[in-house]
């Protein structure tokens, strides 16, 4: 498992691994929003947490289709399926690697982008906390979508169509927690719900992903 994790991380950091792409995308979305809605700082402050959550979600989505596709093409997935490591564990590891290379950098970058959007001072802490709790769920759900569409040629669009509705609960609770934090309200309830969803998806989704991947490898 460790070897797989290290391999995935190394591949992601190598040139052409697409490590920075998600971050760059996140940055661009955040920069584009004020162009779309106008530069009034109080409006931006109100929607900042939602924009940042949405940007993080889209950046995560963008990196999904290379999550399994490359390993599928060069046959790594077949090897993984025949290895003694259960496929569920292998996919969990890959999700962890995806989170470390995509989710975590997004979480760390979000306060900086928060400044651009004039996020109120109270919001930074809760934004980071909610993203930290929520992005693992995005990775685990994403790997399920990737496992479903791995056999489809040019499945990127299909992948988005499948995964986005599954992101709805995470987005609602995550953005709500960040919004309440920024408005100096109590964000405990949505944070707890968000944590529950993340814990639940981490526990259950690898089985669904492995089932889908086994069908595709048949």
């Amino acid at each position: 498992m460790k070897a797989l994790l290290i391999r995935d991380l190394k591949l992601a950091f190598r040139a052409g691994g697409g490590f920075g792409l998600g971050l760059a995308f996140f940055l661009i979305v955040t920069v584009l929003v004020p162009f779309g809605v106008g530069p009034q700082s109080e409006l931006l402050a109100r929607i900042a947490s939602g924009i940042l959550w949405l940007g993080a979600l889209l950046a995560c989505l963008l990196s999904l289709d290379r999550l399994l596709a490359l390993d599928w093409e060069d046959g790594t997935l077949d090897l993984l399926a025949t290895s003694p490591l259960p496929l569920e564990a292998a996919l969990s590891t890959k999700a962890l690697a995806h989170w470390l290379t995509t989710g975590l950098p997004l979480v760390l970058a979000s306060p900086v982008l928060g400044i651009l959007l004039n996020l109120p001072g109270a919001g930074y802490f809760w934004l980071v906390i909610s993203l930290l709790l929520g992005t693992p769920a995005l990775s685990v759900i994403g790997i399920f979508g990737a496992a479903l569409t791995v056999g489809v040629k040019r499945g990127g669009l299909l992948l988005s169509l499948l995964v986005l509705p599954l992101y709805v609960p995470t987005l609602i609770f995550g953005a709500e927690a960040a919004r309440r934090g920024a408005a100096e309200l109590d964000p405990t309830t949505p944070l707890l719900m968000l944590a529950g969803i993340t814990a639940g998806t981490i526990a259950v989704m690898p089985f669904a992903s492995a089932a889908a991947l086994r069908v595709n490898l048949r």
Binding site: V168, P169, I172, F173, E176, P190, M193, I197
Partner: peptide, 9 residues
């Protein structure tokens, strides 16, 4: 899940 999330939201 979404149904409950949306209610809450």
């Amino acid at each position: 899940l979404s149904r409950y999330a949306v209610n809450f939201w």
